[in-house]
Amino acid sequence: MSKRIKVLKTYKIFIDGKFPRTESGRYTQLKKDNLTIANVCLSSRKDIRNAVLSARNAFESWSSKSAYNRSQILYRIAEMMEGNKNQFIEELILQGEEFNKAILEIDQSIDRIIYFAGWPDKINPIFGSVNPVASSHFNFTILEPMGVVGIVASEENSLLGLISSIIPIILSGNTCVTIVSEKLPLCAISLAEVISNSDVPNGVVNIITGSKDELAPHLAQHMDVNALGVNIDNKELKNQMFFQASNNLKRVVDVSKYKIEDSSFESPYIVKKFMEAKTTWHPIEKDFTSTNNY
């Protein structure tokens, strides 16, 4: 019998629920000990453009799903990851992680999805409010998703960092375009495959590989992106992005301030960061017999 030829995976990007190669046709070789591990797409600004377009188109239907339904879908991502554990472990090891740490990271990642999957229908009960006002109005505040969020994910923690960026953002109804770790991109693409198998509608999550220096500014100045979640150490790039984000008053959140590895990251406050408060003054007939204040 002849020796079996190994079947290697082509790592492609994730836009609108599909796995295209980059529009530019460029790629880079990911190496370890002078051996090529994978060819990775070196995406261009046009891939960013296409991804933002797909995220924008996905926003309306994703944000109008019931919060409970979004919860179920997020839980489904965790279920699918559990089934694909080995693949993630292999990739983490390939990227230089030790076996024990790789297992820890995948377990922590799945648990984190489960944690946040519980939140969609509890955000507004907790952060929303009925406000006392002096006039005859019923005045209340609810939190709404912001729209398309641009994410620049952490360079380290290629899996846990990515999940900690994406899940809290999309759970409230936002859609996202994510530029992933430049040197550790393998898990990101496998995560995209899991997401595409998990009832997450096309375009809610888009994943782009390539040079952050080249891509991030286009995301930061895109007029159709409503907020940025940035987790990078490069101060110069970060400042440049925050400056560019001012062109349409994007909200910017410096995610690098949070301790991603720590369980203290698991809190609804990170979800709130990517939501907009809306206050409504609803006219009512003043009921003078009532004793309550609103």
């Binding site: 960013i48 453009r49 933002v52 286009h218 100045q221 895109h222 007029m223 159709d224 062109n247 349409n248």
Partner: peptide
């Protein structure tokens, strides 16, 4: 040089 949004 900046991608635009339909909102504007």
């Amino acid at each position: 040089g900046v991608y635009q949004s339909n909102n504007y």
